[in-house]
Design a protein around this nucleic acid. Sequence first.
RNA 1: GGCGGCGUAGCCAAGUGGUUAAGGCGGAGGUCUGCAAAACCUCUAUUCAGCGGUUCGAAUCCGCUCGCCGCCUCCA
Length: 490
Amino acid sequence: MKIYSTLTRTKEELVPLAPKEVRMYVCGVTVYGVSHVGHARSAIVFDVIRRYLAFKGYRVTFVKNFTDVDDKIIKRAQEEGVSPSELSERYIAEFYQDMEAIGVLRADIEPKATDHIPEMIVLIERLLAGGFAYVVDGDVYFEIRQFPGYGRLSGKNLDELLAGARVEVDERKRDPRDFALWKSAKPGEPSWPSPWGDGRPGWHIECSAMSMRYLGESFDIHGGGEDLMFPHHECEIAQSEAATGQPFARYWIHNGFVNLGAEKMSKSLGNILTIRELVKRHDPDALRLWLLGTHYRNPVEFAEERVRETARALERLRGLIIEAERLSVPGIDGRYPNALERGYPEAWLAAIGHGELTRRAHPCVERFTDAMDDDFNTPGALAALFDLSHELYRYREAVGQGGKRADAFANGVRLLARLGWALGLFQRPAEGVAPSPARAAQAEPLVAEREQARNQRDWKRADELREALRKLGATVEDTPTGPRLKWERT
RNA sequence: GGCGGCGUAGCCAAGUGGUUAAGGCGGAGGUCUGCAAAACCUCUAUUCAGCGGUUCGAAUCCGCUCGCCGCCUCCA
């Protein structure tokens, strides 16, 4: 399969350092506030990448960090009159809640910067010993001139960076572009002892230290939002490769932004839309489906209406799962909340049990994996999924005729659910939106009475009751097996 | 100023040198239905911002023009 790497700006064949094993590190969040749609996109993109690699049969080790010490955290903690660690712990808990709400699996390892100060100190010492860094008044800086590759990832040359003249002017630095590895302690700020005096780590060093700790000095994939390309990832490469003399990450993956209207969304602009708010209004699967409808490297513009449209498309796919479950096929197993399973599309195709349906499903599955193999082309994969759903509905229409069998249909749906799993879809109960118990209790007698009216061919009364149910938020669908309620999201 | 990206149907969005330009939403007609809903069938871009060029052949490559956006500073 091919992955676009920012480092080379081309799609490259994925060749992991160890066969059949992928080690990936993704820069997580700085925990000083609630997460927004942009974080959701990044989390979902890498969740899908991780899932699909597992689906392909790779053993994936996925590390995603928390930055729990930095200027913003300290500032916010002071404003709120709590300790920085209290603040970061709170937002870590919030982050987990949000991720669960949108169906993002936990990473295998989720390290916090403050738990890895010793590793960072060791790394900084290596850099000092190698002549890549220098100490000034308890601060340690990385000297970028000592690392010729600096600027390669972001495609910047050093002179342009200087010409930009936005770099912080600090007389003590040998070069204005040098960046801090260690910052000396200021009163009232958290600090740790170090060979250079009490202080705290610079931003970039944590990711180098933690990725090396858990994945080794060289690993396969390093990812994050496109904004992290420079300076963060650029600095990570410099300090890591300077320290080890080894190539750091092999493939660099950056996801595009979520814009709000014409503007980018960011905490500093204050125009954020939180995940918390979003999942109140939208089905999490609709949110995911909407996000995956655009390739991960392209920007996407958020609009409530787009997500609502996507929810209608989702209903089509989900209708199949509901249908299959109604055929009492036990547990459509597209849902594996905590298990990463490798995929065997060929076996699943064969397991359908009816040659005709297998034959029709086959090209859909192939297009699905071809699209995903091509730099995680989720829009292409979704197109294949919709085509598969189409084939399944067609087949279901004809069940009972010409050898078409309900069990084959259900097996086909199971295949669809498995493909969906690789995208993180269909992991919740297929019924989707569940009514509150109170509403369900209210609806029950109305449905019963309506059935009675229909049996007596009292269409007027039946329609009144349909209307009454609609006011409760439920749409009635009459099916051969009886009425079915579809609840609105409230 | 430097670097990079984008402009495909009413809307969203794949495709990046060669059969009929995916898919979704929306819309039109039909089947089914007491009526609906869902599903199914048919249709909905002779054309890919514009203009030139390369090529037997371009939405796809090159040049120019217009429009939009991102990064260069904390940010997913």
